[in-house]
Design a protein around this nucleic acid. Structure first.
Length: 775
RNA sequence: GCUGGGGUGGCGGAAUUGGUAGACGCCCAGGACUUAAAAUCCUGUGCCUUUAGGGGCGUACGGGUUCGAUUCCCGUCCCCAGUACCA
């Protein structure tokens, strides 16, 4: 966790997994289970392929057909890839969030909800009329659209499909050259780098094909639109310009007809409506919609989808943004996918007793986009588990997220040779009480591991739905960066060689490199290429491990992003040194076993120090329960200040004073242990009288005594007309009347109340007195 | 644009069932110790004002509710994060 906060972590578990056959044996075990359940399947997909790097790239790495690293062209390649059916669990992933809502950060759940992106609506089929269709007359061809607003279907002016839609492919022969050209243009445009902020202008063309609105019987043109995505829904939409912003924009641009079919509220309107200046996308009541007119949107949606189902041209449908999880990787490391291809038996899963399928020691780059393992005959040449004929292994390996989805369950039963872990061990230990991870895992890792848990539940390994009851997403440590972008490419300058100009308030207004280049200032995740990283070894050399850790915990709440700034770390060093000096100052008097019961005289000073000690124990105990780490450090500092303020020299201290000091120091040292363990252990030797350490000596986190926390006297603020005017001292048990009496007789308060009418006195016991006067 | 989270001193941040705003630390200033420096210790430190006691203002901005608002409500501005022609 600390390394992660320093922005320097790499995932140990995932790296380890790649080198441990006994571990990835069970990745393969799980794969076979999923294959049996129909949750693992293979399909043809397109991947980005960088010729220069000879590697497959993700979408982010290949924005618009250019490799982010080398800048060379990226081509699309067809590859058969393995997938896990995460979409089969989409509803559970959403609905089970109720179980973990209390313990997971809201923004993580929200991001997951968006990522899954459930959308409820209906499919509607629009029959296509074309010359080709008329000739063949075999299968009735239709375009299926997805809509969340079936109630607006009488307002459809066109069916708009993506350029890649199969209907376009099927009718290529009938399309005019202009349409073919436009399709090409749109496809090329989509390949270009996507400017995040820029709004893409609507573009499209009428294909000449016609489709029929199954509700109204209207004949509608089929358009191709650049704003329709093949990847979502069905790749085709019904265009309702009056009630959808995008369709409105599209219709305006191409002069298509805009027909309003929903009006707000319950008005029953006959005839034409005034022309709309923008799309009206709220719910309302239907107009110009045949038998459905006057109904509300809500009712119409239900009834119209039922009607469509009954008449065979549609159905209620839910779509998701979530895709199935592509687990194929063309790498020579990672757990091999245990599948064998046999000429006569086809796709055959490996037998459980043959697991693990082992990786070769090394494999060459293929340069083709295929896995390096495809060049290693010793690896892929095998026999079919079914018919024993020569066969070929799958050469793809699994995504490392597969390992990270369940690694922590292996901790429950690490030596189990038969199964990933025994259900008994899981029943005893799991689910996880507290999971800690970086914010950056919110949607990928944490969705996969939730999915995995549901699969484990369905194969009987566990009995719960969710892997972790509580999640802490700690913030990252980030650093200042300086770069120049003029050459088209970002060039980073190490912060040490940058002159920063700040305004009177200390805000950065500009920066220049030593050779005079003006630079842009930013705060970014640490990385070597940006030169803003912090080397923990260096920090430990200079300040020590304890001070470094203490500072990171103290500087900001754990969930905050922390902008690295070394100026505060000296404070941690000073604090630890101060504690050290306190212990050494008192070490002759605090040696040996301590009794729980106070002995000696109890002066006000002694009581005060003991009170502070026990209050601090209480605060820190509560803070740690809430996973707050910055405020306990502050509390420890306060306690050490209080000990420092106790003005008695060790050689003059009486029994009672020694008791109080010893209790304070020992509590301080014990509570310091989680934050600065090395220092705390060394100091603890002074109490233990041996070097065996806290655990061996049976040390415990201190407990507070509720009796000692009570105050003899508390300060009660007194307000007059809402303004703080005085403070009075009172017993914490003082009654309302006593407090009112005290406040009204206070000298300062009298100055404010003299000659005025007291309208009201509000007394909050133990808290304050508020007086309202008039005149 | 939408969604989520925020806006508190020079800085990181404390404090919220509505009850003394600024804990703790950093920075800065002054002092003690020292031939001197470092280290350490002490004092001060939200802003304005006053000789002083004190007074006024202050939790992004403008309103509201309340004896009392950093906290609750309405509106505005700004920042951060996520996300996107999601039909």
């Amino acid at each position: 966790g600390q390394l992660e906060r320093l922005g320097l972590s790499y995932d140990w578990t995932r790296q380890m997994a790649a080198h441990r056959p006994e571990y990835y044996k069970f990745d393969q075990w799980f794969f076979l289970k999923m294959y049996e359940m129909g949750l693992a399947y293979k399909k043809m997909t397109q991947v980005n392929w960088c010729e220069f790097d000879q590697a497959t790239l993700s979408n982010e790495q290949a924005s618009g057909g250019i490799c982010w690293r080398c800048g060379s062209a990226v081509t699309k390649k067809n590859l058969e890839q393995w997938f896990f059916k995460t979409t089969a669990y989409a509803d559970q992933l959403l609905d089970d969030m109720a179980e973990i809502e209390a313990g997971w950060p809201a923004n993580v759940l929200k991001r997951q909800r968006d990522w899954i992106g459930r959308s409820e609506g209906a499919y509607v089929d629009f029959k296509v009329q074309s010359s080709k269709f008329q000739v063949e007359e075999k299968n009735i061809e239709s375009i299926r659209v997805f809509t969340t607003r079936i109630d607006t279907i009488y307002g459809v002016n066109a069916v708009v499909v993506a350029a890649e839609h199969p209907i376009v492919q099927a009718h290529l022969g009938e399309l005019s050259p202009a349409v073919i050209a436009k399709i090409k243009e749109i496809k090329i445009e989509k390949m270009k780098p996507a400017d995040r902020e820029a709004e893409i202008e609507k573009d499209g063309i009428d294909t000449g094909l016609m489709a029929v609105n199954p509700f109204s019987g209207e004949e509608l043109p089929v358009w191709i639109g650049n704003y329709v995505m093949m990847e979502y829904g069905t790749g085709a939409v019904m265009s309702v310009p009056a009630h959808d912003e995008r369709d409105f924009e599209f219709a305006k641009k191409f002069g298509l007809n805009i027909k309003q079919v929903i009006v707000s509220g319950q008005q029953s309107v006959v005839g034409d409506q005034p022309e709309l200046s923008e799309a009206f996308s709220d719910y309302g009541s239907l107009i110009n919609s045949g038998q459905w007119s006057v109904k509300t949107s809500e009712d119409a949606k239900l009834e119209m989808s039922t009607f469509a189902t009954a008449n065979g041209f549609g159905e209620v449908a839910t779509t998701y943004r979530l895709r199935d999880w592509g687990i194929s990787r063309q790498r020579f490391w990672g757990s091999p996918i245990p599948i064998i291809y046999c000429r006569s038996c086809g796709v055959v899963p490996e037998k459980y007793e043959n697991l693990p399928v082992r990786l070769p020691d090394t494999a060459p780059f293929t340069g083709t986009g295929e896995s390096p393992l495809a060049k290693v005959p010793e690896f892929y040449e095998t026999v079919c588990p079914n018919c024993n004929e020569p066969a070929k292994r799958e050469t793809d390996t699994m995504d490392t997220f597969v390992d990270s989805s369940w690694y922590y369950f292996r901790y429950l039963d690490p030596n189990n040779a038969e199964m990933p872990f025994s259900p008994d061990a899981a029943a005893y230990w799991a689910p996880v009480d507290q999971y800690i991870g970086g914010d950056d895992h919110a949607v990928m890792h944490l969705i996969y591991t939730r999915f995995w848990t549901k699969v484990m539940r369905d194969i009987g390994l566990v009995k719960f739905n969710e892997p972790a009851k509580r999640l802490l997403a700690q913030g990252m440590v980030v650093g200042e960066t300086f770069y120049n972008e003029e050459g088209g490419k970002r060039v980073y300058y190490p912060p040490s060689g940058v002159m920063v100009e700040r305004d009177a308030k200390g805000k950065v207004v500009g920066a220049k490199s030593t050779d005079g280049v003006s630079l842009t200032w930013a705060i970014e995740r640490m990385s070597k290429s940006k030169g803003n990283g912090v080397d923990p070894d260096e920090m430990i050399d200079i300040y020590g491990a304890d001070a470094s850790r203490l500072f990171i915990l103290f500087a900001a709440p754990i969930e905050n992003e922390l902008v690295w700034n070394e100026s505060g770390i000296e404070g941690s060093v000073r604090f630890l040194q101060r504690v050290w000096r306190i212990v050494w100052k008192w070490k002759e008097r605090i040696h040996g076993p301590r009794s729980k019961v106070q002995s000696g005289e109890s002066t006000p000073e002694v009581r005060k120090l003991r009170q502070k000690t026990h209050q601090t124990i209480q605060r820190i105990t509560e803070n740690l329960e809430d996973l707050q780490f910055n405020t306990p450090v502050a509390a420890l500092m306060e306690l050490s200040n209080a000990i420092g303020d106790f003005k008695v020299e060790p050689d003059q201290a009486n029994e009672g004073e020694v008791f109080a000091v010893r209790e304070a120091i020992e509590s301080l040292v014990l509570m310091l242990a989680p934050f600065a363990p090395h220092t705390a252990e060394e100091l603890y030797e002074q109490f233990a009288g041996n070097g065996d350490g806290m655990l061996a000596n049976g040390a415990r986190f201190p407990e507070f005594d509720p009796e000692l926390i009570k105050f003899d006297e508390i300060e009660i603020p007194v307000q007059v007309n809402g303004k703080l005017r005085s403070r009075v001292l009172a017993s914490p048990d003082a009654t309302t009347d006593q407090l009112q009496e005290l406040a009204l007789n206070d000298k300062k308060i009298k100055e404010y109340t003299n000659g005025k009418e007291i309208v009201k006195v509000v007394v909050v016991p133990k808290r304050l007195v508020s007086i309202v006067v008039k005149g």
